[in-house]
Structure formats: structure tokens, C-alpha cells
């Protein structure tokens, strides 16, 4: 059950969410079978509305953001919304594609976290968690817009937005907890490394004090510049303070 960890659960949930959010976006008039809402012979989707009469092919408006009551494709039919809102409010349905885009980005990031070494990077997970916050806000916004425009005439693709909002909230929570876990792991490895380094520098100092002469310390592995600078510091050289330090000094 090694695959069952937070990363894979988030990736799986986000896959489900992306699928959920695709349905409202491809609703009528892009496809004829998926309807966001229907009310008194009219069917509504994110990019337009259609007149559906039994036994006949639906007549739909052109695909665009915001409903147009004077579309030439359906002349002779008047548009009215279940909530009696003004038609201009339907422009708010633009949040559906925005939410989908954000969720797809989040999904891609979660896949990167699951499949690559970026999964151990606290900053990348932090970025993903922040994107998940945005995705949650937009997903909730989509559901509220649908509810405001179509009220209880909302059909299953609209209610899927509610489900995806809840699932994104869960993912968001999991991502923040993942960030904490990775941060702790990073800290533990840092602490271990630091202790190891401290032991090494202590052994160097011991040698310095015993020989009081030039000592060949090149045999010690100085893999990076940080260690070099720490050696410089241990050799009583100036220790350059960081550019931004704002807490009381410990002398």
C-alpha cells in the first residue's frame, strides 16, 4: 500500500475534480446531451442557451460568454432566466472556464508532486497549496453563480460544481498538511546534517589545537561553499552577517 499516500490521494481527487468541472463547461450548446439547467422548454449552458422542443433538434445560440436574447439562430423565442436576473449577469458564467483552467494547473502540479522529486520541495508544495486556495475560491464562485442564475432548476452538472468545491477544500487541506510534513522532514534532515557537520568541525579544531601548525584539511570532503565558509568561520575569520537580520543578536 505504498502508493496510498497524501500525494497520490491528492492527485486522484484532483483528477476526479477536473472531470467534474469539465461537464458544465462542455454543456449546451457545445454538446446537446449535457444541460446545466432547464426551465420551461429552455436549456442553459455556460456558453449559451437553447430552445428544446420534444422530438426536435434543439435550436441553440452561438457559443459565447453571456446570453444573448436577440441571437438570430433562435429568433422568435424569448429568453428568461429561472431567477429573473438580468441577462448581463450571465456573463459571470465566465468563471467556469477560469475555474477549470486553475484546476487543471493544480492537477498538473499535483502530478509533478507525485511523480517527480519536486514532491519533497517545500516551496513547490507551498506554491501548489496557494494555487489550490485560488481554485477553491473560483470553484465556489462557479457554484454560487449557477445557484444565483438557475436556482433549483440547476441540473447535475451544476451540482457537480458543489461536489468539486468540497473535494478541492479537502485537497487544499491535504496539501497544507503535506507542506507541513515535508517541512518537518526537511528540517530533520537539515538538523542531522548540521549535527554531522558540527562533529566534523569539532574534529578539525581538535587537530588544529594539537598540531598548532599548518594542517592539511583537504582530506575532508568540502563539498560545497557553505562548508567552506563554515570552515572559514571556525578559523576565526570574519563571519559576515546576513543582509537582513532583525532579531536580537546572540553574542
Amino acid at each position: 500500500m505504498r502508493w496510498l499516500n497524501i500525494r497520490s490521494i491528492v492527485a486522484f481527487l484532483l483528477t476526479v475534480i477536473v472531470v467534474f468541472q469539465i461537464f458544465p463547461v462542455i454543456s449546451i450548446p457545445i454538446t446537446n446531451s449535457i444541460i446545466l439547467s432547464s426551465h420551461e422548454g429552455l436549456s442553459y449552458g455556460v456558453f449559451g442557451w437553447c430552445v428544446t422542443e420534444p422530438g426536435m433538434e434543439p435550436q441553440c445560440t452561438r457559443t459565447k460568454i453571456g446570453y444573448d436574447s436577440s441571437d438570430p439562430a433562435i429568433l422568435g423565442h424569448s429568453l428568461f432566466l429561472p431567477s429573473s436576473s438580468k441577462y448581463s449577469v450571465t456573463k459571470l458564467l465566465v468563471v467556469h472556464p477560469i475555474a477549470l483552467t486553475l484546476t487543471v494547473i493544480l492537477w498538473a502540479m499535483s502530478l509533478i508532486i507525485t511523480l517527480s522529486r519536486m514532491g519533497t520541495s517545500p516551496s513547490f508544495i507551498l506554491l501548489t497549496a496557494c494555487v489550490s486556495l485560488l481554485a477553491f475560491l473560483f470553484s465556489l464562485f462557479c457554484f454560487l453563480v449557477d445557484l444565483l442564475l438557475f436556482k433549483l432548476a440547476l441540473r447535475w452538472p451544476g451540482w457537480l460544481m458543489f461536489a468539486s468545491t468540497v473535494l478541492i477544500a479537502v485537497c487544499c487541506s491535504l496539501l497544507w498538511s503535506l507542506r507541513r510534513t515535508v517541512s518537518i522532514q526537511k528540517y530533520e534532515s537539515l538538523r542531522m546534517g548540521s549535527e554531522e557537520e558540527g562533529n566534523r568541525s569539532n574534529s578539525i579544531i581538535t587537530r588544529v589545537s594539537s598540531k598548532k601548525d599548518k594542517i592539511n584539511v583537504e582530506s575532508y570532503e568540502m563539498s560545497n561553499m557553505d562548508r567552506l565558509s563554515s570552515m572559514a568561520a571556525s578559523a576565526n575569520l570574519s563571519y559576515i552577517e546576513p543582509q537582513l537580520a532583525y532579531k536580537g543578536s546572540i553574542v
Partner: peptide, 23 residues
């Protein structure tokens, strides 16, 4: 290295990462 003989003053940097700042 050109060093100073005084004992260095060490400050805590809230924002710094785990690595030491380069000299």
C-alpha cells in the same frame, strides 16, 4: 583569507534558509 581576529557576532536570520550566507 583576510580575517579579523575578533569573535564574530552571530545574528539569527528569520528569513534565511538552512544554508549559511556566503562570505
Amino acid at each position: 583569507f583576510q580575517g579579523t581576529s575578533k569573535v564574530p557576532e552571530v545574528r539569527i536570520d528569520h528569513t534565511s534558509s538552512s544554508t549559511l550566507s556566503k562570505t
